[in-house]
């Protein structure tokens, strides 16, 4: 249909799309099909594979550790939606107000963590969190707030919150940029009229800007959910899923099963489980958000 508008032949469209489709098939579709295939086997590498049918899936449904890591993922998602979406929205309010100076500078500084590698961030924050030498406990101590000093990465009760902080910190910049560009898409006249009508400061944000960028916010929430369903590297570096399994997330559980316990078949089953759960969550978020398109 779109083709008709520009008067381009179907064949041309397919030719033009073929490289990307080939690429997509090669890096997404084929591995996915292979994973589904492996998930029906007991396999630890090499030529010996034992077909077990749906056994792996049964095991997955009963696997407390898997559901535990799913719960951890959900917890991280909730924290990150609040942090990664909420904080940039508040910052947006600052950026469009006239009181904030050095906007360019602030934007650059906020964006810097985005380009850092997850491994670097993981190491950086394990140092920050270190119990005796970490800067966080050092600051708390120098402010004589000893009562707040925690063993950030070793206390199973708070470890999920500790590992979420770097995730939030790193991605604030991404969402800020997304929101800022959406705001720039709002015609200046609308904003001016709003101001004339007395919508200033928070009111302008709440009643004019947010409704106008609500679709962008929905997309951002979806990105945030899918991004945090597959979170792995930060946590792998900081705690390795520990202590015990208290900061284990699904991606790492799949990794541990596949490459540490060497249950490649079951590892594939877990990956398929992650896929199904992620899709469900995304659909749910779309339903709840009432996305029209």
């Amino acid at each position: 249909m779109a083709g008709n508008r520009f008067n381009v032949k179907k064949k041309t469209i397919w030719i033009a799309l073929s490289p990307s489709i080939a690429f997509f098939v090669f890096i997404v579709v084929i591995p996915l099909v292979l994973s589904i295939y492996f998930s029906f086997y007991n396999w630890s590498g090499g030529p010996n594979m034992k077909f077990v049918g749906l056994e792996n899936y049964k095991e997955l449904l009963m696997d407390g550790d898997f559901w535990g890591s799913f719960r951890n993922n959900l917890y991280i998602i909730v924290l990150c939606v609040i942090g990664q979406i909420g904080i940039p929205l508040v910052l947006c309010g600052l950026f469009i107000s006239r009181t904030l100076k050095f906007k360019e500078f602030h934007r650059t500084v906020i964006f810097i963590p985005v380009v850092l590698s997850a491994v670097v961030i993981g190491f950086l924050w394990s140092m920050i969190y270190s119990k005796d030498m970490g800067i966080l406990n050092l600051i708390l101590r120098s402010l004589s707030m000893e009562g707040l000093i925690r063993n950030w990465l070793n206390d199973p009760d708070i470890v999920l919150r500790s590992v979420s902080a770097p995730l939030i910190w790193q991605y604030i910049g991404v969402y800020l940029v997304i929101f800022m560009s959406a705001i720039q898409g709002i015609p200046q006249s609308v904003l001016e009229v709003a101001e004339l009508d007395g919508a200033v400061g928070f009111k302008k944000l709440r009643y004019v800007v947010f409704p106008l960028i609500s679709n962008t916010i929905k997309v951002a929430i979806m990105l945030c959910i899918s991004g945090n369903m597959k979170v792995f590297d930060h946590i792998y570096i900081m705690t390795g899923g520990g202590p015990g399994k208290s900061s284990m997330v699904m991606a790492q559980y799949a990794y541990t099963n596949s490459f540490e316990m060497f249950k490649l078949g079951y590892g594939s089953t877990i990956s398929i489980g992650i896929l199904v759960l992620s899709m469900t969550l995304i659909m749910l978020s779309r339903k709840l958000g009432g996305a029209k398109n």
Binding site: S44, G45, G46, P47, N48, F259, F262, L264
Partner: peptide, 29 residues
């Protein structure tokens, strides 16, 4: 080395931990 073993692409000589041996014998690698 575990990943290479899974992909059946092991080199001619390599180093393993003893715990990997059973798996490699079973898969005749």
């Amino acid at each position: 080395i575990k990943t290479t073993a899974a992909g059946n692409e092991l080199p001619d000589i390599f180093v393993i931990r003893a715990s990997m041996l059973d798996m490699l014998i079973e898969t005749e690698l």
